[in-house]
Simulated scan of single mutants.
Amino acid sequence: MSLLGQLNQDMKDAMRAKDKARLSVIRMVKAAIQNESIKKGDELDSEEELTVLSREFKQRKESLGEFESAGREDLVAGLNVELKVIEEYLPTQLTEEEILAIVEEVIAETGATSKADFGKVMKVILPKVKGKADGSVISKLLQQKLS
């Protein structure tokens, strides 16, 4: 079942369960995917749906950090709920050790030796971990290895 199909089914389940918070998040994610589909002018494939889902997750994660630093606990609680719901639709996230293994493998594969090769290595890593790892974690680990 496609992500959009899964969202439709979960939206119906949330309506039946009268879970307003979950229903709201599912509707937001579904709308984001549909908007992207309209922008593209065609149906999204599963990889494009995953990209939209990852973007929504990342936006909320960034907002969470800002709200926490501003002391807005009322908004933090709501965002945590949204993050949990969105996370259910993302692929299982890689651990830092798994990401490090991929980074080391790609460095050896590309023959990267310095920070000047950073972009070349990232270009190879990102498609391998799409939706499964945060880009900032990958970047941090890669910088450590290339320094």
Rank of each mutant, 00 (worst) to 15 (best):
L3S: 11
L3V: 14
L7V: 05
L7F: 09
N8K: 15
Q9R: 14
Q9P: 00
Q9S: 14
D13N: 12
D13M: 11
A17R: 13
K20P: 00
K20H: 12
S24D: 14
I26F: 05
R27M: 11
R27D: 13
M28P: 00
A31P: 00
A32C: 01
I33P: 01
N35T: 09
N35Y: 03
I38F: 07
G41W: 03
S46V: 06
S46Q: 10
E56S: 07
F57E: 07
K58M: 11
R60L: 12
R60W: 11
E62H: 04
E62C: 00
S63C: 00
G65L: 12
A70W: 07
E73T: 13
L75Y: 04
L75N: 03
L79P: 04
N80S: 04
V81Q: 14
V81Y: 08
L83W: 02
K84A: 14
I86W: 01
I86T: 02
E87G: 01
P91E: 02
E97V: 10
I102A: 03
I102K: 05
I107M: 03
T110F: 07
S114F: 02
S114M: 05
A116N: 12
D117V: 04
D117T: 02
G119V: 12
V124H: 05
V124Y: 03
I125P: 02
L126R: 12
P127T: 06
K130Y: 05
A133H: 08
I138Y: 03
L142S: 10
